[in-house]
């Protein structure tokens, strides 16, 4: 092979391989039983839409479906930030008939998570809103996924997608009992604050070309453009929740806001849970059902912030009794 030819061969085969493997992965990912694969593949129509982060996974779907005789779809994921949830919920409403109810755990308003955002790059081709959010929040992930299709599947989310290829994820719940050490340690817990006003950071970068140009500018100037905040909005998180609620209401869905249970000793250490409740109620105009202390049994918890299956059943029974799920 001629001296320089192999370089072109490597680049060409890499490009073709990237596109070919990316295509195969896209097809495989779309067939998965994982929730987001179903969401974007028109297989997620439901009567009740459930929204939260890892604490939202305790909306234990098999039991809810059994007691309500309704179809459910859970958007929740570990560390899910509200802005990402907002986009996923809006996509749901754009793709399906409006569900009767949407239940949202408002304690998910405690963080922003650009890392998880970048994991969702594999679904960006299916959603303009998701693509725009990715572009705003994670330029590396956005530009990388434009450049390499294989890179779209470089994430934990894709691994889960594979894991749930042929089995349902509806009973995905951390099913263990809180350790004795944690129970004993709960006596010494420090005060905990839910940070429901984390600052939003938006980068100025818009296109791959601009990104590279900015990097060049950084190289020769003393005023770096990378990571420059163009907007810092302490109410961003709550506004995202409000937007999500209004979007659902506009489609005719009844929205229920809840605070999911915490381990009692931990719940008592949260200093601003009532502030969060008041703020959300004032901004959304909806009551927040506070279940933070609804489950008392130690055996119902997996850790301080998550119920196990037994606890989830108790919690769901209480929501049912309060007509939150009906």
């Amino acid at each position: 092979m001629k001296n320089s030819l192999w370089i072109f061969a490597v680049l060409a085969i890499t490009f073709l391989g990237d596109r070919a493997i990316g295509y195969v992965m896209q097809q495989q990912a779309a067939d998965s039983q994982f929730r987001y694969a179903r969401l974007y593949d028109n297989r997620a129509e439901a009567d009740i839409l459930l929204v939260g982060n890892s604490r939202g996974l305790i909306f234990y779907q098999p039991y809810i479906e059994e007691v309500t005789q309704s179809e459910t779809f859970n958007v929740s994921y570990n560390g899910m930030p509200i802005d990402l949830a907002n986009v996923l919920v809006q996509d749901y409403f754009d793709l399906y008939p409006a569900p009767k109810k949407m239940v949202v755990d408002v304690t998910m308003c405690d963080r922003l998570n650009d890392q998880l955002m970048s994991d969702f790059k594999m679904y960006a081709p299916y959603s303009e809103k998701l693509s725009k959010l990715l572009k705003d929040k994670s330029d590396t992930a956005y530009n990388g996924s434009q450049f390499s299709h294989l890179f779209r599947y470089n994430s934990e989310l894709y691994q889960r997608n594979l894991f749930f290829q042929n089995k349902t994820d509806e009973d995905w719940l951390l099913d263990r009992v809180i350790s004795d050490g944690m129970v004993e340690g709960s006596a010494d817990l420090k005060d905990y604050t839910i940070d429901f006003q984390p600052t939003q950071k938006t980068k100025q970068v818009k296109t791959s070309f601009e990104y590279v140009t900015n990097q060049l500018v950084d190289m020769v100037t003393d005023s770096p453009t990378k990571g420059t905040d163009v907007e810092t909005n302490p109410e961003y998180v709550i506004n995202q929740l409000v937007e999500m609620v209004k979007y659902a209401q506009a489609k005719g869905t009844e929205v229920e806001l809840v605070i999911n249970p915490y381990f009692p000793a931990f719940a008592n250490k949260i200093v601003n849970i009532q502030d969060l409740k008041r703020t959300v109620e004032a901004k959304t105009g909806l009551p927040v059902n506070d279940y933070s202390l609804a489950v008392k049994e130690t055996a119902g918890f997996g850790d301080y912030q998550h119920l196990n299956k037994a606890g989830a059943r108790t919690f769901i029974d209480k929501m049912l009794a309060d007509n939150v799920l009906k």
Binding site: A9, V10, G17, T140, S148, L150
Partner: peptide, 22 residues
């Protein structure tokens, strides 16, 4: 050269699929 092209391509694809870039 064939071995070279295959291994270099594999490495590039593995980097794209498994790399952490932040």
């Amino acid at each position: 050269p064939i071995f070279r092209v295959v291994t270099y391509t594999l490495l590039l694809l593995l980097i794209a699929f498994m790399g952490t870039f932040d």
